[in-house]
């Protein structure tokens, strides 16, 4: 045990460096996923033929391809079309795009759970679509959407480890390198696992807070 603590002291600075990248990757991808997801969901909800088609196509295509393959594609294939992203950019965009499709489905479920009478009531007092979404539909949808949203946030945090395959030096990547050079698999991977667990705590707290905040009307 003493040995474990002593070695942890040595490994910690290196791993914490990875934690920093994992956190910024999670946050960047989460912002992209949330905004894009909202766009897909609103396009689908609009009922306007071409928009619905585009949204469905994107969501179903992206959902059907493994995140790993998407990351490889963005990092290794897009440069051939002149789109040259850094490893971090490619990771953030790839994860953001992949997760926007899961988010879109969460959001859609929330939107579709709202009684049609709400739409009619909004129309009957002269609201147009944007005002109705902002004042009537979205505030109610948020409540239904938050629990699955919290869940998706935590999945995203853990899936940032996949960005290690395109050389993003996040937590898992740092752990792998460290384990390979020290042969101390047990200490390193235990630390890595605990760090992910610790990182998920603020997300749990955040989603709990948001649920209370919006649950209260």
């Amino acid at each position: 045990m003493n040995d474990f603590i002593e070695k942890s002291g040595d490994y910690l600075p290196i791993l914490l460096n990875g934690v920093g990248i994992t956190v910024s990757l999670t946050i960047t991808a989460l912002v992209i996923a949330t905004l894009l997801g909202l766009v897909w969901a609103l396009m689908r909800y609009s009922g306007i033929g071409p928009l619905v088609f585009i949204s469905k196509t994107v969501v179903n295509t992206v959902r059907g391809i493994p995140i790993l393959v998407q990351l490889f594609y963005i990092y290794f294939v897009l440069p051939e079309f002149g789109i040259d992203l850094s490893a971090f950019q490619a990771g953030a965009f790839g994860l953001g795009l992949a997760y926007s499709c899961y988010m879109a489905e969460n959001f859609r479920a929330g939107l579709e759970a709202i009684d049609k009478g709400q739409i009619e009531a909004a129309h009957s007092i002269g609201m147009g679509w944007p005002l109705m979404m902002r004042r009537v539909i979205l505030p109610q949808a948020v409540r239904t959407v938050l629990p699955p949203y919290g869940n998706t946030m935590i999945m995203l945090l853990k899936d940032t480890s996949q960005a290690s395959v395109i050389t993003v030096a996040e937590l898992t990547m740092k752990g792998k390198l460290l384990a390979a050079s020290t042969f101390d698999n047990m200490t390193v991977y235990t630390l890595v696992a605990v760090m992910y667990l610790v990182l998920s705590v603020p997300l749990l707290v955040l989603s709990g807070y948001l649920e209370r905040r919006f649950g209260k009307k």
């Binding site: 009684d115 009478g117 709400q118 009619e120 009531a121 129309h123 009957s124 007092i125 002269g126 609201m127 147009g128 009537v136 505030p139 109610q140 409540r143 009307k217």
Partner: peptide
């Protein structure tokens, strides 16, 4: 139709009040 709706408005069978307000 939006401006017409503000001049002739409607009361529904199931009230349709906004529950979050």
């Amino acid at each position: 139709v939006r401006s017409l709706r503000t001049s002739v408005t409607m009361v529904f069978q199931r009230f349709n009040l906004f529950p979050h307000r």
